[in-house]
Design a protein around this nucleic acid. Structure first.
Lengths: 134, 134, 134, 134
DNA sequence: GTGGTCTAGACCACT
DNA sequence: GTGGTCTAGACCACA
């Protein structure tokens, strides 16, 4: 965790707490943050990023709600184990993909190139569900 | 275009103009809206959907800015031809994909399943960059 | 809605936003707040109750997340239609009931008396699921 | 008591001492813990559950305050005899029930289904006030 | 020392 | 004019 880098764009339209949430999800997905690993405390993270503690709080609360992390009254926030593809999540994912694929197609990125990009991302890092830890 | 269906969810968190922008992008990507085809006027679209003209205006402006449509004072809004994968777009796309793939992985959807979902979407519709006109 | 009374206990241990959430749930369940009815704006509610707008905001956000209300960007918060007994909710409900029934039993309130109390509450107001509106 | 099982969820939102208090109340209500039976010492309980003694202490103090157990400096904590439905308790119970019933109604669980759930819970265990000793 | 709650007040995005 | 975001700073509950 120590070497995890979180980048925020304060000029972006996407709220800071969403950006933070996304960065942490990527961190978990890419294996930088392992199961059970401890996240920085709310205040620590806030100080490191130069933002308000409530903003971090909100990001953590969402991640908890989505099942990505669990917040333990004693040990703070820790990364939760991987879930199993719930149907409702798959539906949401498919909608996201349909949009992304549309954008790519219109911009001239065809099926093969798209697939290669995905493959590249999968290869670049050790994604959790590929290397079964539990 | 006449038979194109645009669905808006007024209860959704995503702003109406973003939803509209997304639906049009999907429409273009899936071939429902062909190159050079004319989009309804701002007022017409607003009336059809029961939303404010300003909202449609905003969606069109974004689409134009992103290069998906071109707006001509004489002919109104028309669908722009397919672009060629600009590097800046690819970078944006890769960031989007990295997040989506992370979410999927952590939720237990591995590489193979993910690839199959993509393939399924590509097969379901005839995307522009694969079959130019339809 | 105009005559709906919300009582908060500032000395209570239960957070204000939870109290507010509970009062609104009761309001909906008892039929005081009908389907589609509009709730006061965040600021209005905050002013009426003498609390901060963010506190009301949090209560509304939870109610939205639980499916009790829906927040429309145009018309503010409105009461959502009744759901259908999802299994996960039933499980939560059963746990709650098991505790409440235990407390009652130990305090000398037996099965019959307990059932009568429930019946009394059901009779006192027109609960939504008994009088099918939709 | 020896075979009584207490389950705590450290990831839950409800404080540990409340969870512990609830589990003991259910234990008493269901007859697993009989009148006059001795509860483990604070330290013993704390060690068994792997929690802090202060936390157990707090739970016991609340149970005593609510009249569920009595604490004797010589004999430790023992289960108190069944109370008789005090009016103040009934009022508290009725408030709890009103909320639970509201939630159920709005979620589509009507009067009959609710009553059946209650009956099911009453049948599943021998509650104290119905069969005094077990 | 941890997260959770609450406040007052400011600014922004959306319609 | 609506809800949403963000801040700084205070206080509390939990373990």
């Amino acid at each position: 965790m120590d070497n995890m880098i979180i980048t925020l764009d304060f000029k972006s339209d996407t709220p800071i707490y969403v950006q933070l949430r996304n960065e942490i999800v990527i961190g978990i997905g890419s294996g930088e943050l392992a199961d059970g690993e401890k996240l920085p405390t709310v205040r620590q993270m806030a100080e490191d990023l130069g933002i308000n503690a409530m903003t971090v709080n909100k990001a953590y609360a969402i991640l908890k709600n989505e099942g990505f992390i669990s917040i333990d009254r004693r040990h703070g926030a820790t990364v939760a184990p991987i879930g199993n593809g719930q149907p409702e999540f798959k539906e949401k994912l498919e909608n996201e993909l349909r949009l992304v694929i549309s954008e790519a197609s219109v911009k001239g990125i065809g099926r093969e190139e798209f697939m290669q990009m995905c493959a590249g991302i999968f290869s670049s890092v050790s994604f959790k569900s590929t290397s079964i830890t539990e």
